[in-house]
Amino acid sequence: MREMGLTAQNIERRRNFVGLDSDDSKRIVRIQELVEGHLEELTSVFFAFLGGIDEARPLLGNRDIIEKVRLLKKEHLSEMVRGEYGTDYIEQRVRLAVVYSNAGLASRVFLGAYHHMLRALGVLVMKHSEHDPMAGFESYMSLKKVAFLDIGIIVDVIVFERERVIRQQQEAIRELSTPVLQIRERLLLLPIIGVIDTQRARLITDSLLRSIRANRARVVVVDVTGVATIDSKVANHLLQTVTAARLMGATAIVTGISSEVAQSLVGLGIDLVKFNTVGDLQGGIEEAERLIGYRVIQTTDNGAAEHMKEA
């Protein structure tokens, strides 16, 4: 529920979408007794429809599931006419939807079955409203709002469950995509590639600070060549990371700011003085080595010797 953002506020919003209010509840309660008396018959319409199509086989083929679903469906119908459509009601809808989703029931198949059951319910209501057909019709129309509330939930759950796999993969990629590399003793490299959102920014800061401590790093080179857009939020994250690194005794050098990004930062009015910047990654590493006190000297191998002779 919480994962899907189904808060009390969201549920109220969903009720507003379908126009469900307390007057509807009153009209629905008028047919409560009638529907309660026909629960078995109405749920049978739902499952009879599913029984006739191939796509529902994963759901109907399993006896354990089918018993559970029949029970939940009957509970659904009975709750549907009780007039209360708060958190408890929505929780039940989610529970049933998760069962559908796990059984691989597609939303179009569910919608077909649900439609047939509602039609049977409508016929039943009208048959018992001969004395006042208008009242019967009104009750049914109010119930239809509940039905659309249900459909909204169930379709969202089916989509949400399907997207779960994608989200898990994204999480995995996110973990992989923020390596902190040690180049030399006390010199770290943090290459940032792609889109930085709040969560990823936090992850980057965390892993960098941990690595600074573990490697007793003096200098960190943060390379942003792979970041296409730096807006004020991302710039703020970078600033905070640089400041935190400084507090832990490490100097941060930012490299790879493209001309577009540089103009963005100037446009935003970000104080670049706080960034210790060097044009490209190579220059940044050289600067870092100089800060720590390394000197890199080219050995005279064959290639270099040849070159020298020519000169």
């Binding site: 296409a228 857009t229 730096i230 807006d231 939020k233 577009e260 103009q263 963005s264 446009g267």
Partner: peptide, 30 residues
């Protein structure tokens, strides 16, 4: 941001201006 950048490119904006348009969208959407 990406849609904005695509549209800006189709419109004939130079690369820097595309980035600045994407930046403005980013800030407003944020």
């Amino acid at each position: 941001r990406q849609k904005g950048r695509e549209l800006a490119a189709a419109c004939g904006f130079a690369s820097t201006d595309q980035t600045l348009i994407a930046l403005a969208i980013s800030e407003l959407a944020r």
